[in-house]
């Protein structure tokens, strides 16, 4: 379902923070801050996770010259930990109207769609939207203890420690503006391997991008960039192959990029690339926003992908349902 935002809400400011390992990221120089301790000097991983979210929000408020928390109308955010406790705990400190949002790693975009809707309604002057993930707390919940010596296949991805948030407000012609959004369906093509998320999520991304283009009456080449969230190197190849089969040419396929595939560069120790709710969020709301602002890109489609599995659904032998949400951002 495509939503057209007539008032074109703008991204006023962004905040992206990352953990120590993310210094290896090719996007490192675009992040606002990097912390040396994975736990953000807190006692537990989950508390560190919450601190990371708070820090990203503080950076945004500083950039937008907002001194009082209460000037923020809404906080829309999510993460991957059970019941999203890190986000809830960060929201406690922020103390503004808050709804926790869960679309797994697609939360970076689903929260921005809701923030844009609230802005369009006139209900919100400033809304913070975004998502985050912290490697240790996600790995131990979804997979194994971090020091466990399991062998990951080439299709596996590395959960990033990063948070990316955007302050969404009224249209400003000098800033990147959100003109349309697509809320994706849940797609499941029967992938059961939790170490092949790219393969599970590619059909969801395909579905969302194609329906966005169709409803908007656009071609792939109308975009300077179509960037998926965390399909990884192999998932991106699969997505391109799907578009190739529907007749897309090579120059069209070159428009597709993936935040997760590029995140850690060519380092083989991260297998297929990065994943996690903080992956797309930290790239979209730092690198992409800055590229739009400098005018390098005029129109981009950001399609964040999310695998809606849980450790329980995997152990009970269920396949992996996936979703993808997209926002179209333009710069005048």
């Amino acid at each position: 379902m495509v939503i057209i935002f007539k008032t074109k809400p703008s991204i006023i400011a962004c905040g992206a923070v990352a953990g120590p390992l993310e210094k290896k990221s090719v996007f490192y120089s675009y992040f606002d801050s990097v912390v040396e301790d994975e736990r953000w000097n807190q006692k537990t991983n989950e508390q560190g996770h919450a601190m990371m979210i708070q820090e990203a929000c503080n950076i945004i408020m500083k950039k937008a010259n907002i001194t009082n928390n209460l000037d923020i109308d809404f906080f829309l955010s999510g993460d991957l930990v059970n019941q999203m406790t890190p986000t809830n705990f960060a929201a406690r400190e922020l103390a503004v109207s808050f709804i926790g949002m869960f679309s797994a790693c697609a939360t970076s975009v689903s929260s921005a769609i809701v923030a844009s809707l609230l802005t369009e309604l006139g209900a919100s002057k400033y809304a913070i939207a975004g998502s985050s993930s912290q490697h240790n707390s996600i790995e131990r919940q979804f997979r194994y203890p971090v020091d466990y010596g399991g062998q990951k296949p080439e299709t596996a991805q590395w959960t990033v420690t990063a948070a990316g948030y955007a302050l969404i407000g009224k249209h400003d012609p000098k800033l990147p503006s959100i003109v349309a959004g697509t809320i994706g369906k849940v797609v499941d093509y029967g992938e059961v391997n939790p170490f092949h998320m790219g393969g599970a999520m590619a059909p969801a991304a395909f579905d969302t991008i194609s329906s966005h283009l169709k409803k908007r009456n656009q071609k792939i080449t109308d975009y300077d960039l179509i960037m998926t969230g965390d399909l990884g190197k192999i998932g991106l190849k699969i997505l391109k192959a799907m578009f190739a089969q529907t007749g897309a040419k090579q120059e069209e396929l070159d428009i597709f990029r993936d935040a997760g595939a590029e995140f850690y560069g060519e380092d083989k120790s991260f297998q297929s690339g990065a994943s996690g709710a903080g992956c797309s969020a930290s790239v979209y709301y730092s690198y992409i926003e800055q590229q739009l602002k400098t005018g390098r890109y005029k129109r981009v489609l950001l399609c964040a992908t999310g695998a809606l599995l849980s450790p329980l659904s995997f152990q009970q032998g269920q396949s992996i349902p996936c979703t993808a949400h997209a926002i179209e951002i333009t710069m005048e």
């Binding site: 080439e154 299709t155 059909p203 192999i234 190849k237 699969i238 192959a241 799907m242 089969q245």
Partner: peptide, 23 residues
């Protein structure tokens, strides 16, 4: 694109498990 067609594309692109190397 149905599930079977997708399965074909996925299998084609996903690198095979390096059985021999792993063993």
């Amino acid at each position: 694109m149905d599930q079977q067609q997708y399965q074909q594309i996925e299998d084609q692109i996903t690198p095979p498990t390096p059985y021999f190397k792993n063993v």
